[in-house]
Every structure is written in C-alpha cells, then in structure tokens.
C-alpha cells in the first residue's frame, strides 16, 4: 500500500514541476572547478613559460604560424597556451569555426584521421572578426597525441603537408618519444618545463585571496612542494582541501593526506627496517603499511627521494637500492601485488 502511494506521488512530480518551471527561479550557475576558472585567459597570463610565450608572440605578429608540437609534464600549461593563442587569433566568436580540438576521449583511429580531420583541414575559410588578426587558416589541436596509434600518426603526415596553406596542426603530448619522427620533424617543438616554485606559489596565493581560502603560508609551501611543478595538481589539491575544511585553517598534514602522500614518520620507519635487515621486523612493518592502504607507487617515489638524499649510504649502496626500486616500480606498474613487491624491496641486498 505504501509503495503504491509513493509511486503515485512520483507519478505527479514531473508534471507539477513542469508547470511551475516558468515561474521558478533560474538554475544557479554551474559551479566551475577552479582549474577551469583560473585557466589563463591570454598569453600574458601564462606563468613561468617565458621562452615559449615570447616565441609564440613573435609568430603572432608575423601572422605566420608553423605547425606546433608542445611537450612536457602534465599541468605545465600546454593546453592552456594553445587555447589562449587561438583566442587571441580569432576572438571568442570565430574560434568555434576555426578550431577543431580532438583528444584521447574521441575516437582517433586511422578512419577518423582520414575522414574528420581531413575534411576539416580541407575547407577554406574567409571572413574575420573585429579587433582580432583572424589569419586565413584553421587550427587543429590534437591533445594527448602520444596516445594516438602509429598508424593514425602516419596517416597524418601527408595531410599535414597537403593542407599546410590553410590549416595548422598543434600536437600536444607528455612524451615526445611516442610521436613518430616524421611528424615531429614537421613541427616547431616547444618544451614546457615544470613550473618553478615562485610562480606556482604566486598563483596559489592569488586563488587563496580570491576564494578566501584559509591556507597558512607553510601549507602553501608544502602544497607547492608536493605538487612538483604541476599547476593543475596544486590547484585541484587546494580546491579539494577547501571543500573538506571550508573556512577552517588547512594544516600541512591535512594537505599531505589529500595529496595521497605517505606521512614522513612511516617512511622513516620503512627506511629503518630496510637498514636493519631483520626479516621479522620487515614482515610486520610491511603488513602494517599494506593495511593502511597507501599507494605503492607513491611509496616508491618517496623512498627513492629518501635513499638519494641519505648521507649515510655509500654510492654503491645507493645505486643498488635504486636498481631494486626501479624493478619493483616496474612490477607495480604491471599490476603485481604490492605486498609481495614491497617485501621484496626491503629484503633485497644492497
């Protein structure tokens, strides 16, 4: 009986709200993640990539853009740069017709390159927007190009050349070694380096002010350190921390937890048992670490930092430890069991 009532209510609900829709308040504007909100709006806004920006500006003046290949670690502003560049070239209206963005979430097999990209590349464009240079070519952005197949990349070679008078390509990738040589040689390459700490810090502080985040200076420093030059990561972390703690001050430990960083005392303990070579201790400590659920890859990288900076170990010892670390990290990447691999690391001779 109750069930009936409930479904009866449900039945009427949509129509009721449908009627009142015109009078109801408009939906609040969607909350934008900070990484989108604070994406650089123009070329001058891009932090810490002075050389790249300077060169691109020069090419803007001459209106002659080469094919571009941006590469560098994640979160260094590659996508932001090309989007800002396109905006400066075409303005907000024209950009929709002139820019085609394809990323790894789109189907990018050889058929798509042959059909969609070629068709877009083929069309000539004319007309211009007021106040913008609007040069007579289009831009095709291939984001995350390193996850394109070899075949798809080779299909691109000829297309790039044939339509080079009316289309420019911009390839974006993390690893330049995964782009086939013929493609790379057709592009002007730009390397994006990890952001330096001062510019990241400035940016974070600016966001803290704008969003009134209660983030003490030492937490900001810590945040910049754990994000290792990845701007997106640092902004995401800041926003996550803000969501969790709202107006409360964010402590350093809280930031580490959000970033998934293993606490230092635990790393100390692991280093100690590693050097003690006592199998019983190793077993129990590893068991404890695994139960706490820390990420294996993160453990490896933090242990590695510790080994490299340890003053008590000789170079030979360090290199042996680093070698095992490498093997274990590879095994973890292949999906091997974290428990066994961590044990293996700690019992390895050095």
């Amino acid at each position: 009986m109750r069930y009936l009532c409930r479904s009866y209510e449900d039945f009427f609900k949509p129509s009721k709200s449908g009627r009142s829709k015109s009078s109801s308040k408009p939906r609040e504007p969607p909350i934008r993640p900070w990484i989108e909100k604070y994406r650089p709006k123009d070329m001058n806004d891009i932090s810490s990539q002075e050389e790249v920006v300077a060169v691109l500006k020069k090419t803007l003046e001459s209106q002659n853009l080469p094919h571009l290949l941006f590469y560098g670690p994640p979160g260094t502003g590659k996508t932001s740069t090309i989007l800002a560049l396109a905006r400066e070239l075409y303005g907000p209206e024209l950009i929709k017709d002139r820019v085609l963005e394809l990323n790894a979430s789109d189907e990018r097999g050889i058929d798509v390159i042959r059909a969609k990209v070629k068709n877009f590349a083929r069309t000539t464009v004319s007309g211009s927007a007021n106040g913008y240079p609007s040069p007579p070519y289009k831009i095709i952005i291939l984001d995350e190009a390193d996850s394109m197949t070899q075949d798809a990349q080779s299909a691109l070679r000829r297309t790039m050349e044939t339509y080079s008078n009316i289309t420019r390509f911009c390839l974006i990738c993390n690893y330049i070694s995964r782009i086939i040589q013929p493609l790379a040689s057709r592009c002007a390459k730009f390397r994006f380096k990890p952001l330096d700490t001062t510019s990241t810090k400035q940016r974070i502080e600016e966001i803290c002010r704008n969003e009134s985040v209660n983030c003490p200076p030492e937490t900001v420093d810590h945040l910049v350190r754990v994000s290792e030059g990845d701007m997106r990561r640092s902004i995401m972390l800041l926003q996550s921390a803000y969501r969790l703690y709202q107006s409360e001050p964010i402590t350093k430990d809280a930031m580490s937890e959000i970033a998934g960083v293993v606490p230092e005392p635990l790393i100390d303990k692991l280093m100690a048992v590693w050097q003690s070579k006592n199998i019983a201790h190793i077993e129990s400590t590893v068991n404890q670490v695994i139960k706490a659920g820390y990420s294996g890859a993160q453990l490896m990288s933090q242990l590695h930092d510790r080994v490299i900076s340890d003053a008590h170990l000789s170079s030979i010892q360090k290199s042996k430890m680093a070698q095992t670390l490498g093997q274990v990290d590879k095994a973890l990447g292949d999906g091997a069991s974290e428990h066994l691999q961590l044990l293996r690391l700690l019992v390895a001779a050095y």
Partner: peptide
C-alpha cells in the same frame, strides 16, 4: 564536469595514471 562525476574504486593506485590521479580527490580507506 557539469553533468558528470566519476568515482573510481580501486585496491591500489599504482596502476592509475598520474593525470587521472591529479584530477581526483584521493580518499584512502585504511
């Protein structure tokens, strides 16, 4: 992001690529 949130559930984050990790709030359940 406007229409969709993803919750990934996994035993180990070692095999999750860094770009995905940096887009998520990490929740560790010990």
């Amino acid at each position: 992001m406007a229409n969709l949130r993803v919750i990934l559930c996994t035993e180990s984050t070692s095999k999750i690529i860094a770009p995905i990790r940096s887009r998520c709030l990490l929740v560790r359940v010990a």
